[in-house]
Amino acid sequence: MTGLSTRTLVCGFNGSLRFIKEEDSTGKNAFSSSWITPFWNDLVNDWSPEMLSVSSSWEQLFLHYVGSSETFSFGSSKMICTGTVAVAGTLLYCASDDGSVAVHRPEDAAVITKFTSDGHWRRLKMICAPIAWETGLASKGYRLFGLDFDGRLFDIGLANGQMVSKRILMEEIVTEISAGREHALFLSSSGAVYSYGMSSRGQLGHGHLNNERTATRIEDDFGGVKVIQISAGGWMSMALNDNGEVFVWGWNSAGALGLPSRGVRERTGNPIDNNEEYVEVIAEPKRLDLYEKIVWISCGMRHCGVITRTGSVLVWGLNQHGQLGLGDTVDRDVPCRVSSPFPDAKICRLFCGEWNTVLLLQETQRTRT
């Protein structure tokens, strides 16, 4: 008999030695620059790639079964969250089916505080939280965005034991949300992209560095094709259209946009070509030449990755902690193909965290009868 199982691979920053326990010759193991052998093999089975996502902090990974509304934490005991989750910095937010939102400490899964819904929604489908932003509604508290099952978007403040939210009025129904360090992206049902927040490095995509206090549509046709996925990184943004084309904008620090970076070339000893256009900031979407159709995208703090239609993984950007999984700690300003340690397994999902990367691989297992 045969069945499907999942391998979960991780590389990058190994906060508090949570991801791998082995020590190197110096007695420390701060990161892994290649893929660590799988976790959760005994935990994940009978799995559909459409029903699983990953959130990661510096020290924790959280597997989320969207279908069964369970969240599992690696590095601490099993957690149950009947709803949806988001990780921002050192905090884990869990929006439950009863409309409440709990704030957890990822290192021990303890609940810092729980906020009862103010009644503006019945249940949230998706949440995201900027890591560092003006607190706005949540003075000296927490701030996040919530999307309910009717496609309505909310700005949520959590402070002084109370939840205060307001509806973000949109022209269209929203289907996806994503938050970076200082900004957020919203995707509408028609495939339009809206941005909101700070634009210190052009991450809002409006052709300037001005902040936006309202959700503002990005005036770009994205190749004349509707956008089907968005991802907000630290100070950059990415969008995938229905043609399999990828668009990037924001800060190209360490080659985070996959575009030529003078700093990367100088640090790696590559010659500077005075005829080449080096990029620091791009304040409006630019199509990235990947020469393959893309089916999945993800932004980390300063690195990115995509999955191609043929199942390959391309990565680029900051590699200080080995988060690119290329076996070294050299930054890349051009997309590079990743070698999976399990070539017979299908790579279904890629999640770029702040300083790490997670791959979900689906493989066929034969069992004795």
Rank of each mutant, 00 (worst) to 15 (best):
M1S: 11
T8I: 08
C11S: 04
C11Q: 09
G12A: 06
F13C: 00
N14P: 14
S16H: 13
L17M: 13
I20E: 11
S25Q: 10
T26Y: 12
N29I: 00
F31W: 08
D46S: 15
S69N: 13
T71A: 14
S76M: 03
G89D: 03
L92D: 02
Y93P: 09
S96Y: 13
D98K: 12
V103N: 10
E107I: 03
D108K: 03
A109D: 04
G119M: 10
K125Y: 00
I131L: 15
Y142R: 13
L144N: 08
D148C: 07
F154P: 13
D155H: 10
G161H: 02
E176P: 05
E176F: 13
S189H: 09
S189Y: 01
G202K: 05
H206I: 14
H208W: 02
H208Q: 06
N210L: 13
N211V: 07
T214A: 15
R217I: 08
E219F: 06
D220L: 03
G224H: 06
V227A: 14
M238H: 00
A239Q: 02
V246M: 04
F247C: 07
G250D: 00
L257E: 05
G263E: 14
T268R: 09
P271I: 11
I272E: 08
N274G: 15
E277M: 15
V279I: 15
I282K: 13
P285Y: 08
P285N: 14
I294K: 00
H303M: 03
I307S: 07
T308H: 00
V315W: 03
N319A: 11
L324M: 09
G325A: 08
G327V: 01
G327M: 12
G327Q: 12
P335A: 14
F342M: 09
P343S: 04
D344A: 11
A345R: 11
E354T: 14
W355I: 05
V358I: 13
R366V: 08
